[in-house]
């Protein structure tokens, strides 16, 4: 079994009072709780903190933990002889258990001893999975193969972690942060309890060309100055079939050219819009001939792009 230093995780002294431990927990929970935190490793950090607090807040569990002695975090260790009497009437192996599971069943034993029936139906655990998918996958729908760290209790109530693979069909039209439910794909229920559910939260990977807003798509449309002035027809790279877009004569940079129903499919019917945002781009270097043409244009034009500067 690998050692975890719960005191170090909580940032408290081994002799810390219950009050100090509670304070430390609250501070760390506000910082790392995945529902309120923006820290990148929030979920992992909070899991450790919650695990440490679960044991240290309970005087009995804390005493049992202290009896294990002190090791380096991650160091392999064996509990002292007879230590398992805290948990079970008969000796058992610690090999494939981890510390959190062990202390979780500690409470389970108390519950069993007090006669609060172990035969009560208990629903299976719900699992959460954050899936990053590409815009193309969201557009067309996709199949994902998810590998979960499933925790399944054995017949004695000890929890074992096993990888579990779930193949999920994601329907088309996923938006950022949208959630899906896979009924019955969570943990197994015990004693006739219903199986848990698997919940997937979708996040969209950035796309090199398209930006997403709900079901709408945005794409920058670079135009040469003459294309903007004279108008042009452009083939916009496809996400769901190529789109030919007409930029009218006199197209201005930053204006939105909308193509209805060519955004992303909506879950029920129809689709969002595709917006192309023209940008006027210029060549980094021009030939003498081009320069002469432009000078000619400048001389013959009465256009004043900064007319509004003088109106005040």
């Amino acid at each position: 079994m690998k050692y975890k230093d719960y005191y170090q995780i909580m940032g408290v002294d081994r002799k810390a009072s219950a009050e100090e431990i509670k304070k430390a927990y609250r501070r760390l929970a506000r910082r790392f709780h995945p529902d309120v935190s923006k820290e990148t490793d929030a979920e992992e950090r909070f899991k450790d903190v919650a695990e440490a607090y679960e044991t240290l807040k309970d005087p009995e569990k804390r005493a049992a933990y202290d009896q294990l002695g002190s090791y380096q975090p991650g160091q392999d260790f064996r509990p002292p002889p007879d230590w398992e009497k805290h948990f079970a009437d008969t000796p058992f192996t610690f090999e494939d258990l981890d510390l959190a599971d062990l202390f979780a069943s500690f409470a389970g034993r108390n519950a069993r001893a007090s006669g609060a029936g172990s035969k009560v139906p208990r629903p299976g655990q719900d699992y959460e999975f954050n899936a990053k998918i590409s815009l193309e996958q969201a557009y067309a729908g996709t199949e994902l193969t998810l590998t979960l760290n499933a925790s399944e209790p054995d017949e004695r109530g000890f929890v074992h972690h096993r990888p579990k693979t779930v193949k999920a069909r994601i329907p088309k039209g996923a938006t950022e942060g949208q959630r899906l439910r896979l009924p019955g794909q969570g943990g197994k229920g015990s004693h006739g309890g219903a199986d848990g559910n698997l919940y997937i939260t979708i996040s969209l990977l950035p796309h090199p060309l398209f930006r997403v807003n709900g079901h709408d798509l945005y794409i920058d449309l670079p135009l040469a100055p003459w294309e903007a002035v004279l108008g042009t027809t452009v083939e916009v790279p496809p996400l769901g079939g190529a789109v030919r877009l007409k930029a009218p004569p006199g197209t201005r940079a930053g204006q939105q050219l909308r193509i209805g129903d060519r955004g992303r499919p909506r879950p029920h019917a129809g689709a969002g819009s595709l917006y192309a945002i023209p940008q006027i781009v210029v060549p980094a270097a021009v030939s003498d001939r081009e320069k002469a043409l432009l000078q000619d244009w400048a001389e013959h034009s009465r256009f004043n792009p900064r007319e509004h500067f003088q109106r005040r």
Partner: peptide
């Protein structure tokens, strides 16, 4: 293969 349902 499990079918996923939108929670929308």
């Amino acid at each position: 293969l499990s079918e996923a349902f939108w929670l929308h």
